[in-house]
């Protein structure tokens, strides 16, 4: 039972991180129908920025708790800036081009960003300082759930609630929903579509950066390559939930995280990534619209 709970909370943590990344995928796809391949790289850049800022602050002798908050904020700011710039450079000039063009441009951007981080920082694994404080009251749970796992799950839940409220009740959220439904019509009623698209990239990138810093602090090391696998898995989660749907991405991420945790715990840990990919292939074949998505018929 204890093993089961350990796996369950481990899966919940994974699922939370996938959810934070998957939201960016699903929001961008909902608005411009593009798989933003570079999104995983934004997550990785968020984690790296967090590491760098934390390193500088620790060297200056800041206390642990404020280091976490400042590192998180800086990571969010820079990841958002990268998301914004990537959209302006690689996707905006291609609006209205053939369907494959922005996708290939996104793959190129992803390769570029990975190598940019590798060359400007390092190609080795970097140890990430343990920023999330250890709470005394978590000790009674022993190995089933650690403090950092709790922090990750709770902050993800808060972020998801915040995002849902934002999309539902603010003016910008309304504009985003309108743009997702019909871009031309949104333009006609006076919505600045370019601004909405930029805002979507900024929000998605910020969420990914939060996930990047939290999970890096939990695992304790990062590498320039982490964005690739995390990105594909988060995309799987988004597809599983129904791409374009925000609650779907959260649900899909949870399902994927738990599936992976139990599969690696009870079956084999060698094939950890294979489970996610098989799940992806199976969903796309049998239910391409995902759990919460709606089937769309292609119009001429």
């Amino acid at each position: 039972m204890e093993y089961f709970l350990e796996l369950f909370f481990g899966g919940l943590t994974r699922g939370s991180i996938y959810a934070l990344i998957a939201l960016g995928y699903t929001m961008v796809y909902g608005i411009i129908e593009l798989i933003n391949f570079a999104h995983g790289e934004i997550y990785m850049i968020g984690a790296f920025t967090g590491l760098i800022v934390a390193g500088v602050l620790t060297a200056l002798g800041f206390p642990e708790a404020s280091t976490l908050v400042i590192a998180l904020m800086c990571a969010v700011i820079w990841a958002a800036a990268y998301g914004y710039t990537v959209e302006k450079v690689a996707y905006k000039p291609l609006r209205g081009a053939q369907r494959l063009s922005p996708l290939i441009s996104a793959i190129g951007m992803s390769i570029f960003l990975q190598n940019y981080v590798m060359l400007s920082q390092t190609s080795d694994f970097l140890p990430f300082p343990e920023l999330i404080p250890q709470f005394g009251f978590m000790e009674r749970f022993g190995s089933t759930m650690s403090s950092s796992e709790m922090v990750i799950v709770v902050s993800t839940i808060l972020v998801c609630i915040g995002l849902t409220l934002f999309i539902k009740f603010t003016k910008l959220g309304k504009a985003m929903r309108a743009t997702a439904q019909n871009r031309k019509m949104a333009m006609l009623v006076g919505i600045n579509v370019d601004m909405v698209i930029s805002a979507t990239f900024v929000i998605g990138s910020s969420l990914a950066a939060v996930g990047g810093v939290l999970i890096a602090s939990h695992i304790g090391q990062i590498n320039y390559f982490i964005g690739f696998i995390a990105g594909i898995k988060a995309f799987t989660a988004a597809v599983l939930g129904g791409i374009g749907s925000i609650p779907g991405a959260m649900l899909g991420a949870l399902v994927l995280g738990l599936t992976e945790a139990f599969a690696t715990g009870y079956v084999s840990s060698d094939y950890e990534d294979v489970f996610a990919f098989c799940l992806l292939v199976l969903i796309l074949i049998f239910r391409p619209a995902g759990i919460m998505g709606k089937e769309k018929t292609q119009k001429v």
Binding site: V89, A90, L94, A97, S101, P102, I104, S105, I107, G108, M109, S110, I111, F112, L113, Q114, N115, Y116, L119
Partner: peptide, 11 residues
């Protein structure tokens, strides 16, 4: 790095 950049620029 160049491959990635060239892919974007070509597109």
């Amino acid at each position: 790095l160049l491959f990635g950049a060239i892919m974007v620029l070509v597109m």
